[in-house]
Every structure is written in C-alpha cells, then in structure tokens.
C-alpha cells in the first residue's frame, strides 16, 4: 500500500530523442493495472486533464497515454509557493496480451482515466497448413 507521505510527482523519463513541440513539462502518471476476468483494467491519475484532452493510442502492442492538463486559474494569478509542477502526462506500456481493439473502453472522471482492454479471444490455436511444393 502506498504511503501517501512519499507520493511525489515524477517527471517523465527521457526515452525518445524527439522532443515535444509544446514546452510544458511532462509527468509520468501513476497507474494501477490489473486483470479482471478477460479484461485488463488500467487506472491512471491525471489531475487537470479532461476527457477532451486525452489521447490514447494502441499501436501493435504499445499502448500510449497522453493527457494535457489545463488549470482553471485566472490569468492574473501569480505562483507564490509551489510544491508540485503542472504539466502534461505521458506514458507507454507494452502489452503482453493481444487486445480486442473494438472492445476498448475509456472514461475519465475526476482526473482519473479508466481503461478497459478486453483480451482477444484466447489466442486461438491456429493451424498452419504447409503446402507441399
């Protein structure tokens, strides 16, 4: 169980050489991932992000999450004491199971992204016919 005292926003690791065009900081969202029956369920903490500002892509087996945080502060607010940074969220995972792409569901409430990824029908045993020749 995570002790809340140690929770600190973590800046995203630099994995790609290409930079983002937006100069905002990028953070790694904390996630819970578990399997429930035939689904893989993922929760990601993305405070400040709404459902319109999140991008989820699944390319081959790589699932990428990207969320753009938007703070509702009026323009004349001036930061006078900061303990955490505000920025975007980005994280990618390599999934070990084949996913049924049509059945993916995503919702975002209260800054928490919930993804349901149904596994594809138990990797059907495929018979490969060998043609003689």
């Amino acid at each position: 169980m995570a002790d809340t005292g140690e929770i600190k926003k973590k800046e995203s690791e630099i994995t790609q050489k290409a930079e983002r065009t937006r100069s905002a900081r990028v953070y790694t969202p904390y996630v819970d991932i578990f399997e429930k029956g035939n689904d893989i369920i993922m929760y990601a903490d993305m405070p400040g992000v709404d459902e319109k500002a999140v991008e989820i892509t699944l390319e081959k087996r790589v699932l990428s999450l990207y969320g753009k945080a938007d703070y509702e502060l009026s323009g004349d607010c001036e930061l006078c004491g900061g303990e955490y940074g505000v920025g975007d969220y980005s994280r990618s995972f390599t999934l070990s199971d084949e996913i049924n792409r049509d059945g993916i569901q995503a919702s975002l409430t209260g800054g928490v992204l919930k993804l349901t990824l149904p596994k594809a029908e138990a990797a059907k045993a495929k018979k490969i016919a060998v043609s003689a020749g």
């Binding site: 929770i7 926003k9 505000v86």
Partner: peptide, 16 residues
Amino acid sequence: SHSPKKFPKVNAWAEG
C-alpha cells in the same frame, strides 16, 4: 522528498 506526511502537495497562488 523525506518530509513525511507532506501530502497532498499544494501550490499557492496570489490573485491580486
């Protein structure tokens, strides 16, 4: 980060 129980992290903004 070894300041225990400092959660949640807070930002303070001055508005005027």
